[in-house]
Amino acid sequence: MIDGIGLQEILIVSTIMFFLGIYGFFTRKNLITILMSIELILNSVNINFVAFNKYLYPNLMQGHFFSLFVIAIAAAEAAVAIAIIIDLFRNIKTIDVEKVSSMKN
């Protein structure tokens, strides 16, 4: 552990990352950047898990395992998302979310 950096500082960083991710998700126009915002959210969760494990429950492993699974599933999610984005790009030659809105009631 580094001197002067406790659980609180790490949690502040992860919370800022989480809300940056949410902000990016709702404001970005490019589908790939939206995907990156989701990665930010998931990584803030990973930081949380690892930090709780290291500072509060150093004898347990559950937090580490959970973050490993989160990383794996984020990869699967990105794979499917990018496949669909490529499909969209073939259809309309753009990945701008504002163009991806053929359905309006």
Binding site: F25, I41, L42, V45, N48, V70, E77, A81
Partner: peptide
């Protein structure tokens, strides 16, 4: 997919 990923991200934050 994107909204489901967002929602599970929010849920994961709660779980952490």
């Amino acid at each position: 997919l994107l909204l489901a990923a967002l929602s599970s991200g929010i849920m994961l934050f709660g779980i952490s």
